[in-house]
Each structure stands twice: as C-alpha cells, then as structure tokens.
Design a protein around this nucleic acid. Structure first.
Lengths: 235, 235
DNA sequence: CGAGAAATTAACCCGTTGGATAAATACTGT
DNA sequence: ACAGTATTTATCCAACGGGTTAATTTCTCG
C-alpha cells in the first residue's frame, strides 16, 4: 500500500553535524586565522545553522581549540605508525624527513593552524589539557635511531634528538608555509612538482650528509643559472 | 613685554606622525595579524586620531602593505652590509647563519608579518611593485661563497644557493616563529639564553658539517637526559 | 599680518559579527 | 499514539569596527 512518505524538512544527525562543523571550522580557521574566521561562513560550509555551532561545540574560541586539538591528534596518530626502529639509521632518518614533508604537503591547514596559534602565543594550547597529555614517543623514537646510528658507525655524532626534530620540521615547514612569499620573491613557483622533489632531495641530502659525513649525489645539483636569473631574492 | 605665549593644543609634525603611525601599525599587525589588527588601537598607540591613518597612509590594507614593504626594506638594507666576500667560505656561512638568526631574534615582528602575509597567500606582496623591484644581490652573494668554497676544497659539493638560503632561513625561522607552541609541547622554554645559544651552535654545526664533511664539536652534545625527560613531544 | 593650505580633531555613519532567544520539528521510549 | 526530549530553524540585537564628513587649529609665505 503506497503509504505517502511524508517529506521531512530536515533530519537529525548529531554526529555527522559535529564532524561537518569541525571540518568546516578547520578550513575556515586555516584559511583566515582566528580573527579572520567568520562564524557564519563555518555554519554555511557545514550546511548548518549558525546556532548549531554553539549547540554542538561552543563559542568561536572553543571551536578553534577543538580544531587545533584535532589537528594535533591526527598527526600524532600518523606518527605512531612510522616505526623507525626496524630501519637502519640513515634509512630511518630519510623516512622521517619524507614523512614530515609529505604530511605537511597533505595537510596545509595544519601549518596554517600552527602559525595562527603561535600568533596567539600558544594561548589556547596552554589551556588545553588534551594536547599536553598527548605524550608522543616520537622524540624517544628519534633518540633511539640516533643512538643506533652512532653505535653502528653510520653517524659520526650523537645529535640532540629535539634539535634534530626541530631542524627537520623547520626545513619542511618554512618552505611550505612561506611558499607564497618565497615564490613571489624568487620569481618561481616553489610548489610545482619538480620544485617539491628537488626540495625533498636537498633536505635529505643536507641532513644525512651532516649526520653521516658522506655526501650524496643530490645534495648539489644547482639548477642551470638561466632558470633563476630573473628575480633572485631571499625571504 | 610679557607676551603671553599662547599654549597650542597641538603641533604639526607630518613626518613624525607618519613614522609613529607606521611603527604602531607594525606592532599591531605583527601582534594580531591583518584581520585581528584594530585601526583604533594603531591610532591610539601612535598618539593620533584615527583619521590620521587615512590622511597619511590610506586604508587598513594600504597601511599593512606599507608596513610589510618597510620590513622587507629594512632586512635588505642590513643584508647589504654583510659582505661575505672577504671571509673564507666556512666563516662566511657561519656569519650568514649568525646574522639571520640574530636578525630574526631582534625583529620578531618581521616573522609575524611574513606569516600573516603567507596566510593571505602573498596577495599584497604580489601587488607591491616596490618589493618586486628590490632586487637583492643576496643569493648571488651566497652563490659566490659556495663556488669559492668548492674551488678551495672547503666544501665538498656545490649546493644550490637558493636551497641553501631557504634551509638556513627555515632552520632559524621555524624555531623562533613557532617557539610558543614548541615550548608548550616540549615543556621547556626555547627562548631562554642557553636554549638560543644551543640552537645557534646546532644550526651552524649542521650546515657546516653538511657542506664541509667535517663535523664540529658542538654538533652533538645532547643535554643530560634528566633535563628533558618530562614532556617530550614534537611539533 | 592675513589668507589660503596643511594638519589635526571631533563626531558620526552604517554594515558586520558574534552571540542570544524563542519557536518549530524530528525522534525515542513507553 | 503521544509525551518528552534532542536537534534544528528562524529572528533578533547590541557592540564593534572600518571608514567618512565636517569643523578646527596651526603653519607658511607673499
């Protein structure tokens, strides 16, 4: 019997709604920063009413913090799958660089969120119990790799793993996070495939050369001068 | 004849006013970003009326661009005084790192402005004829140093000077620009004197080791484990 | 010294924005 | 089927913030 199904004006979907809100908020905050983000735009992009944000999450800052915490959770989760313990030390470092680089490329919002949070002097992160309790074994993982490398003779010196981690992250982060201004200033597109490949090779070569003392082929390889003769300028 | 000098309500000082406005704007934009900056606050901190901003410079975005251009001009000017040509290659690289590092420390607003501009995808910089015409001989300077180093046998490989510059800038920039979040996450103050000194030594050692193939004493030197046992976590 | 230009102040305008209130609609268990 | 609750929509609003208008004061130069 054709029971005329009544057409609903809307359906309930609290979990889905929450996810859509947080995803929209992530895009908005990473695209415009905390102050530049618009609550109405988040709602619209989440396919929701503005009131929903306050119902499901809280005010703008709560929303922002939740997004930030989510971003940290995500990278921590992926880090845990890295297990560098089974690789020989140089391979492990290469893999670490490769992972960091590609994670940043795949998640440009993460970079923007970190910049936004640093503009705020980590004010929200300090408040977050969640992030502080997310102890990652990452640095210890690196320490182990370095120690193994020294013992095996692959590495010449026992570098501080925290410094090494910051260096690797910095090499990747700065290039990608500042690619817009750098591209203008150097007059070339730093995000195109070839440029990205070249950068990865450079970083791996730089770090491994410093650790092992052996230079790799890719380390040098300056591009033909003509290609970057035009606008050459730093920062 | 006691001519009762009339007390003025205010004095004219267009140049001074302009300077104070731009300085206040630099502080405001670097502290809050473009969207977070408040025109009234800039006026107040410049000891001026809000109308003055529009009279002397233009609207908020004009003001921002002028600040950004000024920041670039300033670092370019200091770069030009570096002349690395007279130093032997390893010393020249060390000096370059040292300069970059200390410039960033002395001018934290510069870092924040760059981040803000990158959040805007370099939208303003692209519009700026000024910055694009500020051709700096900086990269050529680095190229010369590298070439000299290769010829003298100090350096093992001819690294691309653009990559090298981005790497050096990145090592410095990321550490300082992200010091707030990193300090929370690693649970230690990355900006205190000892930490800064340690970082500089690490960067110099890392880059020189990669270039020369000789490791320096400072490269390793991990801190006693107890000092950083507590909260160890990356990014 | 006085008129016109330059610099500065004071007050206002109006769209935007974060947030709040209240009403409507869809579910759920009984 | 229906009462009660969870979820969503529809409006509203007060503060804020960038920008403007108009009047006021100081300076300059003939």
């Amino acid at each position: 019997m054709a029971k005329a199904k009544r057409v609903l004006k809307w359906q309930r979907d609290p979990e889905g709604m929450r996810i859509r809100i947080l995803e929209a908020a992530k895009q908005e905050f990473s695209a415009h920063g905390l102050a530049g983000a618009r609550v109405d735009r988040i709602a619209a992009n989440a396919g929701a009413n503005k009131r929903m944000l306050y119902y499901h999450v809280g005010n703008k800052e709560d929303l922002y913090l939740e997004v930030l915490e989510g971003a940290y959770e995500q990278i921590r989760a992926e880090e845990r799958t890295l297990d560098l313990e089974h690789l020989d030390p140089p391979k492990a470092i290469e893999r670490l660089i490769d992972f960091t680089w590609n994670y940043f490329i795949r998640n440009p919002e993460f970079l923007a969120l970190l910049n936004t949070e640093n503009l705020a002097k980590a004010r929200h992160l300090k408040r977050s119990t969640k992030v502080k309790s997310m102890h990652s074994p990452f640095v210890e993982m690196i320490r182990t790799v370095v120690n193994r490398g020294v013992e095996s003779g692959d590495f010449r010196v026992a570098v501080d793993p925290v410094q090494l981690y910051i260096s690797i992250a910095g090499l990747c982060f700065f290039y990608l996070s500042n690619s817009a201004t750098l591209s203008v200033i150097f007059g070339r597109d730093l995000l195109k495939k070839e440029a990205r490949d070249e950068r990865l090779a450079h970083m791996v070569a730089l770090v491994l050369a410093a650790l092992t003392g052996k230079s790799t082929a890719d380390f040098g390889k300056p591009k033909p001068a003509g290609l970057r003769a035009a606008a050459i300028q730093p920062v």
